[in-house]
Computed example of a mutant assay.
Amino acid sequence: MSAFARHRRSKRVIATFTGFEADLLRSLASQLVELLRNEAAVPDDDRDPLEAMMDFSGPTTAPEDPVLARLFPTAYTDDEEAAGDFRRFTEGSLRDSKAAAACTIIDTLEEAGLPPELDEDGLMIDVELEHDTATAWLRSFADVRLALATRLEVEDGDEDYWLSLPEDDPRSQAHDIYEWVGYLQETLVDALSH
């Protein structure tokens, strides 16, 4: 199983992934980008002139998708107007930031040699991350884990449930991916702190 470590000489964060692991990471990051960017734009006709000039065109209501609702929680649960204003001014840039972090994973893996279509089972991909790139990976791992946990309805203390599922159950396999991304996140934090 792959893990991140700090390179002794360069002080960069390094990891080696199998082709399958690298392709899985790219797929997870791509799905996150698609989810983050798949929203209906506010029609120009309906925009406030000041809003159009300042480009504060973000949404004012919480997303319907449960994953997006977890990624962008309501800031003021007791004040709907303040919550809408906060969301309108912040959610667009937050979406862009989260999508950019996920794209960093995709770009890094492709720069490291992951072909667009993986066709070699024995392929190994080495990544070497500068601090800023490693931080982007870390932020994206948190978003991917939150998305998976939301879709799977993972809760604190439900480990026995996940262990009771047959190995060939798709939910068990998805939970294994959730756990694996958590392991990568943990080793990346450790590598960055040394």
Rank of each mutant, 00 (worst) to 15 (best):
S2R: 05
A3E: 14
F4A: 10
H7M: 03
V13E: 04
V13F: 02
I14V: 15
I14K: 13
A15I: 06
A15G: 06
T16Y: 02
T18G: 09
F20P: 00
E21H: 11
E21C: 12
L24R: 14
L25H: 04
S27E: 07
L28D: 04
A29I: 11
S30Q: 14
S30L: 11
Q31L: 00
Q31N: 08
V33I: 09
V33E: 08
E34R: 14
L35Q: 13
L36W: 10
D44A: 07
E51Q: 08
A52E: 00
M54H: 05
D55Y: 00
D55W: 05
F56S: 01
S57W: 03
S57I: 03
T60E: 12
T60P: 00
P63S: 05
V67Q: 09
A69R: 12
F72V: 01
P73Y: 09
P73D: 03
T77S: 15
T77D: 13
D79G: 09
D79A: 08
E80I: 08
E81L: 14
A82G: 02
A83Q: 00
G84M: 06
D85W: 09
F89S: 04
F89Y: 09
T90K: 01
E91Y: 14
S93T: 13
S93V: 11
R95H: 11
R95S: 10
D96M: 10
A99S: 08
A100E: 11
A101I: 07
A101Y: 07
A101S: 15
C103N: 15
T104M: 14
I105H: 08
I105F: 10
I106Y: 00
L109N: 10
E110C: 05
A112L: 08
L114S: 10
P115L: 09
P116I: 04
E117Y: 12
D121Q: 14
L123K: 01
L123N: 05
M124A: 14
I125M: 03
D126K: 06
V127S: 03
E128R: 01
E130H: 13
E130Y: 09
D132M: 06
T133R: 10
A134L: 05
S140I: 07
F141G: 10
F141E: 06
V144C: 05
T150M: 02
G157R: 05
E159G: 09
L165E: 04
D168M: 03
D169C: 00
S172C: 07
Q173T: 02
A174E: 01
D176M: 10
D176Y: 03
E179D: 11
V181L: 08
G182N: 06
L184I: 06
E186R: 15
D190P: 00
D190W: 12
S193K: 14
